[in-house]
């Protein structure tokens, strides 16, 4: 089963900028839930979250789903798989119990490759950057959870808004404690992202995703 082990954060969920998906299919007068099972998955997941059973596991579990299944399955199946995964990883239920109850192997997401962190590292309260500052997103590809989308990694941008400090997900999802860090909205020009002129994109990023950059005199 070695082929199952390669899961990094540049996962199938990191969809920004990927080509080939075709038209957006809009369903008119779409119901909130399309079937009762979707409603039950929503209920089950929210209940487990409210009870604190999925802390720091849910979203990363979705990202660790089998890529082919991620693309092929309905949205609330992602939630179901991630909830089952989070409950197993949290020690509330076992894989064997799930398999027995279902009468078949119960699908869960792949294991994380990121190590548990013993210490979250120091929180940062004061923002390093100001509106108008030229920054660049660090080019790095951690094996755990992150909120730095692949399409902006290594790209230059300009800070347009400061949003205050929040728990850094890269730490929170792999540690029992949290690290607070300032977040920013950063504007990226289409030319820098895609190599062709177009409309700008703004991405909300934690401070440690960024590094300072000398703004080019030539633009």
């Amino acid at each position: 089963m070695a082929l199952c082990s390669d899961v990094a954060v540049d996962g199938i969920h990191d969809l920004g900028g990927i080509q080939g998906f075709g038209p957006v299919e809009v369903e008119h007068d779409e119901p909130v839930f399309h079937a009762d099972w979707e409603r039950r998955v929503y209920r089950l997941t929210v209940a487990a979250m409210l009870a604190g059973h999925l802390n720091g596991r849910f979203r990363h579990a979705i990202e660790r789903m089998d890529p082919a299944r991620y693309l092929a399955s309905p949205y609330y199946e992602h939630w179901l798989t991630a909830t089952a995964t989070g409950l197993v990883e949290g020690g509330l239920v076992t894989q064997e119990e799930l398999d027995d109850r279902l009468g078949a192997p119960y699908p869960v997401a792949r294991s994380t490759r990121a190590p548990r962190l013993d210490h979250p590292g120091p929180s940062v309260g004061e923002s390093r950057y100001e509106v108008g500052d030229a920054v660049r997103v660090r080019e790095w590809h951690p094996v755990g959870h992150t909120r730095a989308p692949r399409y902006v990694q290594g790209k230059p941008g300009v800070v347009v808004r400061l949003d205050g400090a929040f728990s850094l997900p890269d730490v929170e999802y792999h540690c029992d404690s949290i690290r607070l860090e300032p977040t920013y909205s950063v504007r990226f020009e289409a030319l820098d992202l895609w190599g062709t002129p177009g409309d700008p994109v703004h991405v909300d990023l934690w401070e440690s995703y960024l590094e300072p950059r000398q703004a080019s005199i030539n633009g």
């Binding site: 199952c4 089998d66 197993v88 509330l92 119960y106």
Partner: peptide, 28 residues
């Protein structure tokens, strides 16, 4: 949950998986 528990397509109906997880959590 380890590598040995990764299951390829296809799998059981999603409704069955919802019911199994719900009932397990309630019973436990």
């Amino acid at each position: 949950m380890g590598e040995g528990h990764h299951h390829p397509l296809p799998t059981t109906p999603v409704e069955d998986r919802v019911a199994a997880l719900e009932s397990l959590l309630v019973d436990k």
